[in-house]
Nucleic acid binder design. Structure first.
Lengths: 280, 280
DNA sequence: ATATATAGTTCCATATTATGGATCTAAAAC
DNA sequence: GTTTTAGATCCATAATATGGAACTATATAT
């Protein structure tokens, strides 16, 4: 009997472990993973996420994800619907968010502009911000038009490049940087219907030519959206404002009108935002 | 050669595994700890927390806390002020909070009552909720009186039993349960000036006799606060509304007036809250 | 209704991770 | 200046977290 043998399951499987070198910090792998799970849960928006979705999204095995989620549920950071078994963020996350709000809540700054746009256009107005390689929906205001395109919930994360906001946040960056970001997000972008990384690059190119982000790929069939980035005083885009409506309301002329409206609001915002207020 | 031997270091040492029983979930100790750190950061409110504070609060060694915090910073869940080295919650926590908000945000429900109270009294009105053994400040509205007692920031956590809200959340529970909770929080309660667990028990007893929570221990010298719990349809307290002001505004008669005002608002709220809406 | 596929969960040997004592550096306090 | 306290780093190894295998529950196809 050789003691080295021992059903060598673990050994053989370590083919490419550590493929992600954590996040640069050693001795905290599982925390890195837990943070990834929390983010992954918000990809699905209000519907919640299933175990497999999260596992696939994070590139982890199901038992691992299950164990970490169980712990997060015990902590109150995650809730699980007993019926559907789907996972949602929990009360602790909301409570902690309140404590973080004073530093990161841009609502006060953007709300008047969003409300004006919603009122003047009748459509749905979105505020998005960049967070790493993601684009997070930070606020949403509905206009009066009775057919409302509520395609994106507040708090939902999507890969940069997806949606008008995600395009807007990239369209002013250098080509090189855009390519890197889109490449890094490519596999996630492929999760949005027929959208693919090269398509995103094309959309960005066209948006640059137009002067505003245009998303007519209809991630949600029948919906089209326009967007513009908001720059900080150093010229870096840190937020985006978008307007979404059903395709029939988005004629070529109206797109131009909306873009003009957006542009004037964005200009006003950029004048207000002084260096100290803008997020890196 | 016996294969069991093999440098027997690990085997022999497994004498007292699980010396910390985590949180009931095995295989996720460091996530449990990370969640504890995040909570600990919110104990200090807007000032942020120092490494030692967090370590003491969580009962962990400084290197452990340092490593976990470094990871949380890399994830964007925590920020560190480069000057003071104090830790704050990061942008990711706020973003995740937005995604959790639809399920846990009670603002809409309570805001009108808070605003009415702030207007009619001129003082500062607080909304608190229970979270495990903590009491979390969920909202705050300022009245018109020019000397404002802003003793508690939104998002700040305190041990149940501390402050008018923390007393209110306990005053309707069975004595046995109160004793257990206060005992569990005793060491943390001792971190609030001269406050001690027995004092808290006395405050609760007096509040029960008065019919409203009264905190005149002046955690913040010069400030006194009153509070009442809000019960869910099953008779369990799940929130508390409090009013704080400087001591000179808190005569015996005025306390009674404030309690009466609180009571009528709380009654109205309890009528509105149907089973489905109330938090467990 | 039955078969098949997919998702969720539990178990556990052990490889990998996370721990914390010791140590060093930096910043307050005296 | 000296002392004290806080923050950060190192690393041997104790203890945790991992994931393959196996099983159950649920959804989908036949």
């Amino acid at each position: 009997m050789d003691l080295k043998q021992a059903r060598g399951s673990r050994r053989t499987a370590s083919k490419k472990r550590n493929k992600h070198p954590a996040n640069g910090v050693t001795g905290a792998q599982s925390i890195h993973r837990a943070a990834g799970l929390l983010r992954a849960i918000t990809f699905r928006g209000r519907d919640g996420a299933r175990l497999v979705d999260v596992a696939r999204q994070c590139g982890l095995e199901r038992p691992t994800v299950h164990r970490i989620l169980k712990c997060l549920v015990a902590e109150g950071m995650v809730t699980q619907d007993p019926g559907t078994r789907r996972y949602f963020l929990g009360h602790l996350v909301f409570e902690l968010g309140l404590a973080a709000a004073p530093q990161f809540n841009m609502q006060q700054l953007f709300e008047p502009a969003l409300l004006r746009l919603a009122e003047r256009t009748g459509d749905t107005v979105y505020l998005s911000m960049r967070s790493g390689l993601d684009c997070v929906c930070m606020d949403r205001k509905e206009g009066a038009f009775p057919i409302k395109t509520l395609t994106l919930d507040v708090g939902t994360r999507r890969p940069l490049g997806v949606g008008a906001g995600g395009i807007a946040l990239l369209m002013t960056l250098a080509d090189e940087e855009v390519r890197e970001i889109v490449a890094a997000n490519a596999w996630r972008i492929a999760g949005y219907g027929s959208l693919r990384a090269p398509v995103v690059l094309d959309l960005i190119k066209r948006s640059q030519a137009l002067g505003f982000a245009l998303n007519d790929r209809q991630l949600t069939p029948g919906a089209i959206s326009v967007g513009l980035p908001v720059m900080n005083p150093y010229g870096a885009p840190y937020a985006a404002i978008g307007i979404g409506a059903i395709a029939s309301r988005m004629s070529a002329e109206r797109l131009q009108q909306l873009a003009a409206l957006l542009k004037s609001e964005v200009r006003a915002l950029e004048r207000v935002v002084v260096a100290g207020k803008a997020r890196a």
